[in-house]
Simulated scan of single mutants.
Amino acid sequence: MSDYLQQFTGALREVVREIGFEDTSISVEDIDPSSVELVASVGITGDLHGFMMLRADMQSAHNFVSKMLINMGIEPEEEEGFGQFHKEAIGEIVNQVSGRSTMMLADQNIDCNITPPTIISGQSIYSDIASCESSISHILSGNFGKIGLFVGIKNSSL
C-alpha cells in the first residue's frame, strides 16, 4: 500500500518544481496540527478510497501563492489577508497534485478518481485521520514556509 501512497509525494514534488519552486525539500514528518489554519482537500474514489490534504498556516500559504505568481511572471497584488484568489490558487495546487497522482497510479493499473477540492480556513483545524488503513504525512519546506501533505486511505479494493 505505501508504494501507492508514495505516488502522491512524487506528484507533489513534480508539480512544485513545474511551477518554479526549485529550492524545496520534502521530509517524512507531520505538520504541527496546532499551526494548521488552511486545509485544501480532495476525496479519492475508485480502487482506493480516502483523501488527500494540503495543510498550512496562513502565512506559509500566502507566501506560497505569492511566490507561485512571481514564478509565473505575475506581480502579486498586495491583497490584505488570504482572499478568495489565494484559496482558489491553493485549490488548484491540490487539484493538480491529486490529478497527477491518479495518473501515476493509473500507470500501476490502479483506477482512481478525485473529487473537486474543498478549502477550509480557520484556527487550529482538526482532521479525524484515525480511521485510515494507511497514510503518509510529509512536509514541503521552502522559503515560503511549510505545507503539509497528508494522504489517508480508508479502504481499497486491491
Rank of each mutant, 00 (worst) to 15 (best):
L48K: 03
L12C: 07
A130I: 10
N63W: 02
L149D: 05
A56M: 00
S121F: 08
L158G: 09
C132H: 09
D47V: 12
S121Q: 14
Y4C: 07
T118S: 15
Q84K: 03
G142A: 03
E22Y: 08
T9C: 12
E37L: 04
I139S: 12
T9F: 04
P76V: 00
A89W: 06
D3T: 11
A106H: 11
N95M: 09
I136D: 00
P116E: 08
A106Q: 07
I114D: 00
S157L: 10
M58N: 01
H138V: 11
I110Q: 01
E88H: 11
L158W: 08
P116I: 14
F8I: 09
P76H: 00
S121D: 15
S121P: 06
S98N: 08
V36R: 04
M68Y: 02
I74P: 02
A11N: 01
E22W: 06
G145I: 05
L5Y: 04
A61M: 05
D111C: 07
I74C: 07
S60T: 07
D47F: 08
S27M: 13
A130L: 12
I129Q: 13
S127I: 11
L5S: 01
L69V: 05
L140P: 04
Q59H: 08
T9W: 03
S124P: 09
S98A: 15
I44Q: 02
G122D: 08
I110V: 15
E75R: 07
D32H: 03
H49P: 06
I147H: 04
I125W: 01
G148H: 04
M72K: 02
L48M: 14
D30Y: 04
V97S: 00
V39E: 05
A40D: 10
I74E: 13
I129V: 14
M58G: 03
N71Y: 06
Q7G: 07
I31T: 07
H86F: 12
D128Q: 10
D30Q: 13
M72C: 08
G10V: 05
S157W: 04
T24C: 15
L158R: 09
F85A: 02
E77S: 10
E14C: 06
G148K: 00
G83I: 01
N155T: 11
K154G: 12
N155L: 06
S137A: 13
L140C: 09
R17C: 12
G142Q: 05
G142N: 02
M104C: 08
D30N: 14
E75A: 12
E18G: 13
D111A: 13
V151C: 07
F64S: 02
G83P: 11
F144W: 03
D3Q: 15
A106P: 10
F85G: 00
D32W: 05
